[in-house]
Design a protein around this nucleic acid. Structure first.
Length: 278
DNA sequence: ATAAGGCCCTGACCGC
DNA sequence: TGCGGTCAGGGCCTTA
């Protein structure tokens, strides 16, 4: 699952490869992947553009072109971007291929078809609802305390809410809650200020280390496995404490990790280190 | 405004 | 071995 650290890795590793490259031709094999404009307009409009800016916002990748437009890509669950020789034929689940002017192509594969592309002069409209960057100056303990105040939803659900903070998904929410000693089903508004401060610090720590380790590659299956643009795996899965470790001993106290469903998503936690009480 | 549930998708996995 | 059922889940939508 590409979350903030994985998307950051994609951008960092693609930027030097794509910078200055011109898109000579675009092919779309499944029209649903293009959220804006239509798939036909996308194919026509992106041909000839040159990549020259690279940014990440939450889990969105922003590829600035040498005109006022930005190509926005969200990988959602199973999307992958890979560079390959232009002679490579479309693979299974390939929905977009952007041919470049250096005999290489940028391939987009996505078995579940959840990911989306936008080509727009107004990227702010696509990103309008996102909360602050968790590693940016606007994400402060005071901000988080304010956003959680009065909320009865489980804290896990609100860590996943991109309007509160942008970029945290299921892996990093679970690891953040573990590090902060907070039970995932605790009502967000019931958390003490020091607990919210711990969550804030834990989220930043987890994300910083995960970026250093180039994200988490897990998966018994290729389906869920995140692969970096050059084909390498990330390394942060080696530092997971709870995510998908149901039944394994807590690294801190040895009690078996438990699993419960919150907000339709699996949550993994240590019932001893993360007690369900204040 | 908030909370909760459904939906999109398809491969992996499980039990029989 | 084959087959049907279940699960995974980010973001968006609907409902209460």
């Amino acid at each position: 699952m590409p979350e903030l650290p994985e998307v950051e890795t994609f951008i960092r590793e693609l930027a030097p490869e794509l910078n200055g490259r011109r898109i000579t031709r675009a092919r779309v094999f499944w029209p649903g992947v293009i959220a804006f404009p239509t798939d036909e307009e996308f194919v026509t409009a992106i041909a000839g553009a040159r990549f020259d800016r690279f940014e990440r916002r939450g889990k969105y990748m922003l590829f600035g072109l040498d005109d006022p437009r930005t190509l926005i890509v969200h990988l959602r669950m199973t999307g992958k971007l890979q560079l390959a020789p232009s002679s490579d034929p479309p693979a299974k689940h390939e929905h977009v291929i952007l041919d470049l002017d250096d005999e290489r192509s940028l391939h987009y594969q996505d078995p579940r078809k959840f990911g989306r592309f936008w080509l727009t002069p107004n990227p702010e409209a696509v990103l309008a609802k996102l909360g602050p960057e968790p590693l940016g100056p606007d994400f402060t303990p005071a901000y988080l305390i304010d956003k959680l105040a009065g909320r009865t939803a489980p804290i896990k659900a609100l860590l996943l809410d991109q309007r509160i903070v942008a970029g945290i998904g299921n892996i990093y929410a679970d690891e953040t809650l573990y590090r902060a000693h907070v039970h995932p089903s605790r009502s967000a508004g019931d958390l003490r200020a020091d607990e919210v401060e711990r969550l804030h610090a834990a989220a930043q720590d987890v994300l910083r280390v995960a970026i250093e380790r180039c994200g988490s590659s897990l998966g018994r299956s290729n389906l869920q496995n995140y692969i970096r643009p050059g084909g390498e795996q990330g390394g942060f899965q080696e530092e997971h404490n709870v995510f998908r470790k149901t039944g394994q001993p807590c690294p801190r106290c040895g009690h078996p990790i438990e699993r419960m469903v919150i907000a339709q998503r699996s949550s993994h936690y240590c019932p001893v280190c993360q007690p369900d009480t204040r």
